[in-house]
Design a protein around this nucleic acid. Structure first.
Length: 279
DNA sequence: ATGTCAGCCGGAGGCTGA
């Protein structure tokens, strides 16, 4: 569906990102959310299943194309799209030895509107950045190295002419306002200075954190642990992000975080983050 | 830290990752 703002004639395309914590356990929840909200593009993380096992038919019958980079049990990313898409890299391109399913990118081509319409292409990335806990471990080194690799590849992608959206579970709380108790989690891999410095380095290449730019302030959480009654206590984290390239930022009409699914039956521990692009 | 959840193997429930 194409949305039109009441005061502007340009149509909007909705792009959302959601860590679903197992697509097999969550397919009904995700399908109902798509029916209700009608995003053109959904960037999914933690599918936790192989490509063969992805419940693609449930989404194809809603009109979505389904592209996946999966593995058994862990990780796994996907892109659902109501418009045709061409998949680019599956996995960050610099290290074929890295078997973690954490990265997929694609270019979508929206149908032209009217005979003089400009080309309406958009590049999107669905990424699941390593958690990296505990700080100082091998897992933490892997996380920091993965961020360096992402920065290197993002620099290349910015050479292209298409507007670009990097979406996903970054496992990065960019600032103290993005954690319910920053003092308690100062040494957490999601908050460590090395982690935040790499995230800022990524932004410095030419990206804008959509939620931070449009809705600044504390409490814009996207994740609440299943444990310790985190949701009713609002003990949340803002770690799921939509980063807009300098060519995508001027297209931004609005963005937000949909907390409703966290309070609904069979929730993921993360909620969708969305943006509307005038595209 | 933990009032949890999901996948694994294997055929219950303990282990892992988050």
């Amino acid at each position: 569906m194409q949305r039109r703002r009441s005061t502007v004639t340009l149509p909007c395309t909705r792009v959302a990102t959601w860590n679903v914590n197992s697509i097999k356990a969550r397919s009904q929840v995700v399908a109902r959310w798509l029916e209700a909200e009608g995003a053109e593009l959904l960037l999914i993380q933690e599918t936790k299943c192989s490509d063969e096992a992805f419940p693609r038919a449930e989404f194809e019958k809603l009109g979505y194309r389904v592209e996946t980079v999966g593995q058994k049990s862990y990780n796994g990313v996907a892109i659902l799209s109501r418009v045709p898409l061409t998949v680019g890299h599956r996995g960050l391109p610099d290290d074929p030895e890295d078997k973690d399913a954490r990265y997929i990118e694609a270019v979508v081509e929206l149908p032209a509107e009217g005979k003089h319409s400009r080309r309406r292409a958009l590049r999107v990335v669905s990424l699941y950045l390593p958690n990296g806990n505990p700080a100082g471990s091998e897992a933490f080194l892997y996380k920091i190295n993965w961020m360096k690799r992402l920065i290197g590849h993002a620099r290349q992608l910015l050479q292209d002419t298409e507007p670009l959206v990097l979406g996903g579970d970054f496992n990065v709380a960019p600032g103290d306002a993005d954690v319910y108790d920053p003092a308690l989690f100062g040494n957490d891999a999601l908050c460590r200075p090395e982690t935040r410095a790499r995230f800022r380095e990524l932004l410095t290449l030419g990206f804008t954190d959509a939620i931070a730019a449009r809705h600044p302030g504390p409490g814009n959480y996207t994740f609440w642990d299943y444990q310790d009654r985190a949701w009713p206590k609002n003990h949340g984290w803002r770690i799921d992000h939509l980063l807009l390239s300098h060519r995508a930022l001027p297209l931004l009409a609005d963005c937000g975080i949909d907390r409703k699914p966290r309070g609904a039956p069979k929730p993921s521990d993360h909620v969708p983050v969305w943006c509307d692009l005038r595209l």
